[in-house]
Amino acid sequence: MPHDITRLHHVGHVVSDMAQAIALYRRLGFHVPPPSVPALAPSEGAAPEPFGAANAHADLSRSFVELVTPVKPGSTAGLPPDARIVPLQAPPENLPVLLSRIEATSTQLRGWCDRFEGLHILMFSSPDVDAAADRLTAAGVGHGGVNTVGRPVETPNGVRTEPVRYLEIDGAPEGRIGVVADLDPEFQHARHLDHPNGAQDLVEAVLCVPDGQLSPVRERYERYLGRPISAEGPVTLMAKADLPDLLPGEDPPVLPALVACAVTVPDVARVCALLKEGGLPVRETGRGEPFVPAESALGAALIFREA
C-alpha cells in the first residue's frame, strides 16, 4: 500500500535577523531571493507597513528550506533593503481572522527565537494530504484538519497565487510539525534551483531528544509517518548521549530540538571548497559527510550528502 507521507516538504529555520540569515545561506552556497513580508495600512489612506513574519525560501527540486523571522509592526529592522513588501488583500469580513492568525504566528516565532535560533518547523510531503489526515485521526494523532492558503509566487507572467494545502499536528514540543501536499509541478518552473553548491533535495531532519525519552518519541513519529522509522529517513531520532556519534561537537541548548538537516549535492568536494572559501568551518559526521556546525549556521547544523 503506498505511503501517504513520502519525504520532507520543508524545514523552517527561525532567525532573529533575516538579512544576516540570507547572507549566511548565500555563503553556504544557496540561491536565496529577497524575503517577502506582509503589510497592512495602519489607517485608511496610509502606506502599508510590514508586520507579522517575513520569509524566504531556498528552493530545491521537491522541497525547500524556509528562513523565517518575526517582524515588529511597522519596523523593517533585520530585513534587507530589497525585502518585498506584500500588501494584504482580503475581504473586510475576513481581515480580522487573517490578522489574528498572522499575529499568532508572529508570537509563536518570537517564542521560538527566545528558546533558541534554529530549526523549529518540520513539514512532511504527501501525495494525498486528505488521506494522511484521515490516517492520523484514526491513529489518535490530534491535528487541526486540512487548511488551504495561497502563497504569492513570482512567475514570468507576473505574480500568481499557489494554493498550499496542509495540516499541523497538535502538541509537538520540538516545534511545528505537519503534513503538506506535494509541491505543485505547475509552479516548479518559477523556483530558483541554480544553487552554487548544487543542492538538489532536502532528505533528512535530525531530532535530538533527552536521554531516556527516545522510545516514546520514536513511537510518536512512527504514528505520524504511518510506518517504522528507518535509516533511509526522512527523520532521524537521536538521544543526546548518541548525538556526538553523528554530529561531533554539537551540543543543543535545549531539548527536544531539531538540530540539523541534510541536503543532497552532486559533488561534496566542490561544496567543501565553496564553504572554506566563504570562511565557514567544515566538520565530518559519523557517516563521513561534511557539515557546517550549528554554532556557525545560526543554530542549525547543515549536512551535505553526495547524491
Rank of each mutant, 00 (worst) to 15 (best):
R101M: 10
G142K: 05
V86E: 12
A90G: 05
L109F: 10
R160G: 03
V153W: 04
G140S: 06
N147W: 05
E117H: 03
V141W: 00
S106E: 04
D82T: 13
R110I: 02
D128M: 04
N94T: 09
P81M: 06
D114N: 13
N147Y: 03
L99D: 01
A131W: 03
T107F: 00
I85M: 10
T155D: 03
A132P: 00
G142I: 03
G142C: 07
H120T: 02
I85T: 07
W112P: 00
A133R: 00
N157R: 11
P127D: 12
P92A: 15
Q108P: 00
F124M: 11
T155R: 08
L119D: 00
N147G: 05
V149N: 05
E154Q: 15
T148V: 14
P152F: 12
E103N: 10
P127H: 05
T137L: 10
A132M: 05
G158P: 06
V86R: 11
E117Q: 12
A90V: 15
V146T: 02
D128E: 09
P96L: 12
R135W: 02
D82Y: 05
G150N: 14
P91V: 06
D134H: 11
D130A: 08
R115K: 13
V159S: 07
T148I: 13
P87F: 12
T148N: 06
I102P: 00
A139N: 06
L88S: 07
I121L: 07
L98M: 14
F124N: 02
G111Q: 13
N157T: 09
R110D: 09
T148A: 13
E103W: 01
S125L: 04
T137A: 14
L95Y: 11
R84F: 02
G111S: 11
H143W: 06
T107V: 09
T148L: 10
P92M: 11
N157K: 12
E93A: 14
L95V: 09
L99K: 07
L109R: 04
C113E: 06
V159R: 15
V146R: 02
R110Q: 14
G142P: 03
G111K: 09
D130L: 08
R135D: 05
L136Y: 01
V86F: 04
